[in-house]
């Protein structure tokens, strides 16, 4: 691993001695052919607020920007043990360093704490993950759907949602001249 990544992990272990971050590359490449190094840490949902706050505030980490927040549904993934991973992509502009955080959550009620109070930019991305995957963000100031409409019940990017939908387009109420 790069020295800057190792330093962040060391700082985190010092601050959170009881958390196992299990740093691992996003992609295990069998042979040493290089490729870009991208490291992720595992953080449980109950520790997420404290860890992200620390990563944002501590000047040795200084992850001032939440570059991306997304989710992966591992329902059909080979050898996956958990269903959802909420993936935080953090960026430190001063150190020019990225690190990913995966927070694994499971059915029936996947829920992670919101990070909107740390990064304002998380607001819409969390709404999108709720809309598309049905992962709730506790403490979100505006937990509405964002891309689909409020009456829509499903979460379309889940792996058990079919590509062509469940007939929402066909069952839509049609207003005609006479239906007033």
């Amino acid at each position: 691993m790069e020295p800057s990544t190792l330093q962040v992990i060391a700082v985190l272990k010092q601050a959170f001695p009881d958390v196992d971050f299990a740093p691992a590359p996003l992609m295990h490449r069998g042979d040493a052919t290089g490729g870009v190094e991208q490291i992720y840490l595992r953080v449980a949902a109950d520790k997420l607020s404290a860890v992200t706050r620390f990563l944002h505030d501590d000047e040795r980490c200084d992850y001032a920007q939440l570059c991306d927040l997304t989710c992966v549904d591992y329902l059909e993934f080979p050898k996956a043990r958990n269903r959802f991973a909420v993936v935080y992509s953090l960026l430190s502009l001063t150190r020019n360093h990225r690190i990913w955080i995966k927070c694994f959550v499971n059915d029936p009620d996947p829920e992670v704490p919101s990070v909107t109070h740390i990064w304002k930019g998380a607001e819409w991305m969390e709404r999108e993950v709720w809309d598309m995957f049905g992962v709730r963000f506790t403490g979100h100031p505006d937990p509405r759907r964002i891309l689909t409409w409020e009456d829509f019940k499903a979460h379309p990017l889940r792996k058990d949602y079919p590509l062509r939908g469940r007939g929402e387009r066909e069952d839509y109420p049609v207003l005609t001249r006479d239906s007033r």
């Binding site: 996003l26 295990h28 870009v36 992509s89 990225r98």
Partner: peptide, 8 residues
């Protein structure tokens, strides 16, 4: 591709 994840 190999199994895993990547960001570009």
């Amino acid at each position: 591709p190999p199994i895993g994840e990547a960001y570009g």
